[in-house]
Computed example of a mutant assay.
Amino acid sequence: MAASYWESTQRRYWQFSKDELAQMREKLEESEQSLVQMFPLPQRRHLSIYFNQQLNRLGKRLGVRQQALATAQIYLKRFYCKVEIRRTNPYLVIATALYLAYFLTLDISRLGECEFFMISEMHSQLIVHQPYRTLTSLQSDFFLSQEEGNLALSIVNDHYMTDLPLLYPPHIIALTAILLALVLRPNNSGGTAANMAAATTTALAQVQAQAQAQAQMPTRTSGSSGNQNASGSEKDRQQEARAKVQRYVAFLTESAIDIEGMVDCTQELISFYECHEQYNDKITREQINRFVKARGLDKS
């Protein structure tokens, strides 16, 4: 892996603005207008959910670890920034992405051809920096409980089904996941998209307000000790939770973190979770299989 994300090909060649990403996808559809009109597909978030499910099923069968699955998801996103999906057999592309991420020895017809195609479209830039390292290193700094850490990890895993890996650095994703885990809390009831939006908006607004006031009167929140007292009262647990959020807010206030980027990441994740509620696996699968079979992409 490259020594630093900031010097990596990921940052130099595979991080885009939302406008850049939209323009790339628009050009792809314009180049294949007849296919686009002939084979309508579900919205992109639903396709990402479906691809994620197929990757997880294949990965579970082969015993592939989560970080390799995450890398495969990024390869899929990069590849489909360059190639219109209707030109490909997505199942073959999924298997190839997993092969590249984990160097499997799969006896799948045309896998070698698809591997060359994918590597070529990614210009052999296969190194991927992920949020997991940042998340692991910061868990103890913010005294995350095991449940909070697991929730943050789950959010990081979910972000691979969005455009965020193509838009923001890994550390921004990790910090957003920690924030969401702190404001939602595993034992907090009603962890809906609406509650997520309200809680994170409040926390990030607090960061911005403190940042403005810091020049005149720097704010530091000592919080409480990192010991997790399982026998504490509900009031104690609430105070501990507030202290964790305040500690986190103080950290963001005093750092040079891209708060606007975190706001955007939060909004994208909220939109994704709302979209996930309308996901229909059967419809998505049928629409993909229709163009794969109609164009003979499932044949050798």
Rank of each mutant, 00 (worst) to 15 (best):
K18R: 13
N280C: 09
A203M: 06
L179V: 04
A250S: 12
G59S: 15
N280R: 07
A72C: 14
A101S: 13
I155A: 11
Q37F: 11
G149D: 05
N150I: 08
I49W: 01
V292R: 00
S4I: 03
P90I: 02
F51P: 14
H46D: 06
S8W: 00
G232H: 01
A101W: 00
T134R: 06
Y13T: 09
R285M: 13
I155D: 13
T96L: 02
P131K: 11
Y132E: 12
R44Y: 04
S140G: 06
N188Q: 11
F116A: 05
E7R: 08
L179Y: 01
I288H: 04
R242W: 02
V245L: 12
L92D: 00
T201H: 08
R110P: 02
I178N: 06
M161W: 01
N157W: 10
S8C: 05
Q210W: 00
K27E: 13
K27T: 08
N289K: 06
A203Q: 05
A194K: 06
A256H: 13
L179F: 01
L76C: 15
L182T: 11
R237T: 08
R285H: 13
V36I: 01
T71Q: 14
Q278P: 00
L41E: 15
Q33P: 02
Q33G: 10
N52P: 03
C81Y: 05
L69P: 13
I270W: 02
Q53G: 15
R11V: 01
R65G: 11
Y160S: 07
E26I: 07
A209V: 08
L106S: 13
K293E: 15
F116D: 02
Q67T: 14
A193R: 02
A205L: 03
E32M: 09
Y50D: 10
I270T: 07
L98A: 12
Q287A: 11
Q54K: 12
D141L: 03
A152R: 06
T9S: 13
Y99K: 07
F117S: 02
T253D: 06
G190C: 05
R61N: 15
E234V: 04
I178Y: 04
L62H: 11
L153Q: 15
S34L: 07
L179A: 08
L164F: 02
